[in-house]
Amino acid sequence: MSNFAIEVKGLRKSFGSQIVLDGIDLAVPAGTVFALLGPNGAGKTTLIHILSTLTAPDQGSVRVAGYDVVTEKNEVKRSISLTGQFAAVDEMLTAEENLRMICRLSGLTSAESGARTAELLKQFGLSSAMGKRVKTYSGGMRRRLDLAISLAASRPVLFLDEPTTGLDTISRRSLWDIILQLKEQGITIFLTTQYLEEADQLADTISVIADGHVVATGTAEELKSRVGGEVIELRNEKEEVIRMISTNGSIHDVRQTLNELAHTVPQEARVSIRKPSMDDVFLALTTKNLEGTRS
């Protein structure tokens, strides 16, 4: 097994005439956290489905934990665990029954399943609701159960498709801690997210996909520096951002930018200069919102 937990080369996937993935290359080193960003419909879920053997690729080579997702499906399945974008729980069962079922199916004995179930219920704050049927759960509780279920058996590669969507701040932080603990244990985590701060906080490597291609890969810092040194932000009196322009931060550049803007923005607009955030990176890479990078 190479030291890449996930290796994707030249991956293509279309649905009918719609090309979703148009030549994706990725390599995720074992034991790291990888975040995949991209606008809605970019193909993040499709990519996760291909990596987790749910969808067959059209073209390209895809290896997970050293196994090919097409020819070695069973080995891949034994090496992975997935929390999909939409809850995959049994509504008619209780949280406890759901967890026990998946533990048993994962090869744990009855006693091990009981212990693991109790442990996970506690870890995900579901102990008090464990005897209620899942259909009575709130969205966030369902999500937490879904995540707990994915951890029933410890597998070397974990896929999380928008794991923190719908979670409150406390649950989100606690999931971040859990993800970092899993990484400590050497587990590779591949996640997608719409919360760029999340990618910033957790990921060793971030890739952004748009229009079927990987448009950028790197650490959060690397990606931010790509956007340019600093960002000039203009806000109106309602504190809404009306313009964002990247700058190298020198007096010369800032003055020139402001002079140019003087004609097009209201004079009451307020100016601030800040370091670029992941949001800026995302916008720059996936839209034309951030104007010309001069540096």
């Binding site: 665990s81 999909g84 995959a88 998946i102």
Partner: peptide, 13 residues
């Protein structure tokens, strides 16, 4: 038609 089948399909069963 519910998500649970996808969970079972990604398991080695």
């Amino acid at each position: 038609t519910s998500g649970i089948i996808d969970r079972f399909r990604t398991m080695p069963i």
